[in-house]
Design a protein around this nucleic acid. Structure first.
Lengths: 254, 254
DNA sequence: GTACAGATTGCACGAATGTGCTTGAATTCA
DNA sequence: TGAATTCAAGCACATTCGTGCAATCTGTAC
């Protein structure tokens, strides 16, 4: 195994596990701990990980907490993301909201797909950077650090220039009567603008977010064209939404 | 076997195996390792593979150039970045250009610093997300994947709303007569707009970029207030720049 | 056919890189 | 505090790399 290859492996493992131990890596990769330490030191110098006694952690606390959320129900999110990614047609202009589920969508877009992705999320932009045929348009604004998305008047204003075919919206809370709601007013404004600028709107929602509400209301349920949810959600939970005219898409168990 | 034919074979094998070893290729193709190394070097220059010690790896072309550049002279870049980070005063609004050196600047800003950072680089925005007292303003635009920065009319337009105290500019090429130049026209437009919107402009430049020029000229040397460069650069190399009125800052050896 | 320029290749040699080991210092934990 | 682990620095060894140089091959012009 080549040195560069080994380091790439370490980074990938770190991405998945959130932390790595020198001793484990030494055993798994069958090289001395010295070599592992050298690897970790050099990767840390490049800013690709954070060196700590005994191993290494993901780069920054903020990204780590972001990574934490990424670990919450990853299976469910991935299933939703995979299904949602199939809704994107070649040549479309798609607004991709920020969030951990939508980040998964970005990762699951087929490599051959030609499309334009408009997003307010720096991590999504970076994730799409090595996608050969996707044009990425980034919406500027103030960075809302907790969610790693750009928000504010600049973001809403930039959206006024966009006329998209599809909007994939990460939904924090969904309730039949209250509608789509979030915990941050700026995010609400941006999501509302995104909905307004797309022909079809898809809500991505995990089971835990169904029938909940937060402080700031984005739009009513009718603003959504499709609802993509996990296979674990029962039909019963969805009756109220279907009766409001929503088309519900659930992935088969994979 | 023709040279072109051999290189084609290398690329195909790489596509299948994800990696190739110089020694293996030498044996299979019955040529010396020197020839293989030459092949790999030239293919890497074309961006068709990623050269590593011992062989080559498959690469996603867009992001590869960025990853490569991150590995070039990291020590020197860090020294420059550390020095440049000291120029930021509390409370200032600072435009931080994209690039590998400026990313290091972001990482070296003191944790206690209160400031606003305006940037067109998603990686810089993410790097600053865990900084407790820095407000991050992201400039939108089209993502230029090779450098991971946003460019285009939207970026320039967004800058018109900004009036910054300081601009830290990653300089690709610097020449006493030609000025600051870059390899991409859109980048040139953005850098020019950044310079125009800041009271003081700092150029960050590694030794290899001094006295070079690229296709698109951003501004003359006089547009810069300060030039930050590495301790390895000799006084002699800087005479021409100093005589143009530039204040040159070199870090002490660390 | 002959001469010549340019490209390609293999070889030699010194430099750079990667690895494991040893030693002594630093860190962590009981 | 003491013991165990982890770390950094230095050393030796093997591999890989880059460069300069000479030999070979290719195509072109005369």
């Amino acid at each position: 195994m080549l040195t560069a290859e080994r380091r790439q492996f370490i980074l990938e493992l770190l991405q998945r596990e959130k932390k790595v131990l020198s001793s484990d890596l030494s055993a798994v990769l069958k090289v001395s701990e010295d070599t592992i330490r050298r690897d970790l030191r050099e990767l840390a110098e490049l800013g690709l990980l954070q060196r700590v006694h005994g191993g290494a952690l993901l780069t920054s606390p903020a990204i780590a907490s972001y990574a934490d959320r990424q670990k919450q129900a990853p299976k469910e999110k991935e299933a939703i993301a995979r299904t949602a990614a199939k809704l994107v047609r070649p040549g479309q202009v798609v607004i991709l909201d920020g969030g951990t589920t939508t980040l998964q969508v970005a990762r699951h877009l087929p490599l051959g797909l030609h499309a334009t992705i408009v997003t307010n999320s720096p991590p999504i932009a970076i994730a799409l950077a090595d996608h050969p045929h996707i044009e990425v348009v980034m919406l500027g604004g103030q960075l809302y650090k907790k969610a790693l998305v750009n928000v504010g008047a600049a973001t809403v204003e930039a959206l006024r220039m966009i006329r998209a075919d599809l909007c994939l919206l990460g939904v924090c809370s969904l309730h039949p009567d209250i509608g789509i709601s979030v915990t941050n007013l700026n995010e609400a404004h941006v999501k509302r603008a995104m909905i307004a600028r797309a022909t079809e709107v898809v809500g991505l929602v995990t089971a835990a977010k169904l029938d909940t509400a937060a402080s700031y209301v984005v739009e009513s349920i009718q603003a959504l064209t499709y609802l993509v949810t996990a296979p674990t959600v029962t039909d019963e939970m969805l009756i109220a939404y279907k009766s409001l005219g929503l088309t519900v898409i659930r992935d088969e168990f994979s």
